[in-house]
């Protein structure tokens, strides 16, 4: 590294420098990573598949892979606990499919990311792994409460109201309240994302400090595109929300 600071890099020095940056792990670490990679390689592929498609087949494969990992890692209580959460979420998604609470997918991804970290990163101390698990349990419980609150909300309709007259008006009112909340948070999120896009522009194109950023056509188009994406996402959320309301 010293010599590169004194003179220009030659192709050989560049190669050496890149080896230093990307080839620095010792053989033991590499062997351990390879072991863990092969342990989780099926699961990695399944997680990508779930991102793309939720069906009986994909959920079945996911649950059977979780079961197989549970048996391989049964000695490690901490890892087994991560797997229990994944199994429980998997069963819920398998049962509810399109009606699944949207946060369940995000939670599934984040619990798996933490589990993978706990399996692969030997540098993470046990205490930190436990903290990750506790956070995931907390998130899992929060999701459970949200789902059961939604269910009890359905059941707690005023007594003496017939099924027929309880319908459209109340349902509409409930939808409106939900939609309002969604729209309010949509505005907040849109503003945050627009800000993000502005920060992104600064980081993407350091040269742009010499350009009038707001006049940049590409940036404006990108922000518009981003807004449209956010609108789309919320439109889908609203549809999910309505579908859930109707189901109730």
């Amino acid at each position: 590294m010293e010599n590169t600071e004194q003179k220009d890099v030659t192709p050989e020095e560049l190669e050496k420098r890149l080896d230093e940056i990307f080839g620095g792990e010792d053989s033991e670490t590499r062997a351990s990573e390879e072991r863990n990679q092969s342990l989780l390689s099926n699961m990695d592929s399944l997680m990508l598949t779930l991102d793309w498609e939720i069906s009986d087949e994909t959920m079945g494969s996911f649950l059977s892979e979780v079961a197989s990992l549970k048996s391989s890692l049964s000695q490690d209580r901490l890892l087994a606990s991560f797997l229990k959460i994944l199994q429980s979420l998997g069963k819920y998604i398998q049962k509810r499919k399109g009606q699944t609470h949207p946060e369940a997918f995000t939670l599934l991804q984040s619990v798996y990311a933490d589990f993978k970290n706990a399996v692969e990163s030997e540098e993470i101390p046990a205490k930190q792994k436990k903290e990750l698990l506790l956070k995931d349990i907390e998130k899992y419980n929060a999701l459970k409460s949200k789902i059961s609150e939604a269910k009890s909300g359905r059941k707690n309709e005023p007594e003496g109201t017939s099924a027929n007259d309880s319908g459209p008006e109340r349902q509409q009112a409930s939808e409106t309240t939900g939609t309002d909340k969604v729209e309010a948070s949509q505005e907040d999120e849109s503003a945050a994302k627009s800000q993000e896009a502005e920060h992104a522009e600064a980081e993407l194109n350091p040269q742009s400090e010499h350009l009038p950023a707001l006049a940049d056509k590409s940036l404006i188009e990108a922000i518009e595109e981003l807004k449209e994406v956010i609108r789309d996402e919320f439109r889908k959320l609203r549809e999910d929300f309505k579908a859930q309301q109707f189901e109730k």
Binding site: D51, P102, F105, V229
Partner: peptide, 18 residues
């Protein structure tokens, strides 16, 4: 995005010499 897709970009900087 919440579905873990790249929304804007990924960015990884590092130095490699002179």
């Amino acid at each position: 995005t919440h579905g873990d897709r790249t929304l804007f970009f990924d960015f990884l900087p590092f130095d490699i010499g002179k």
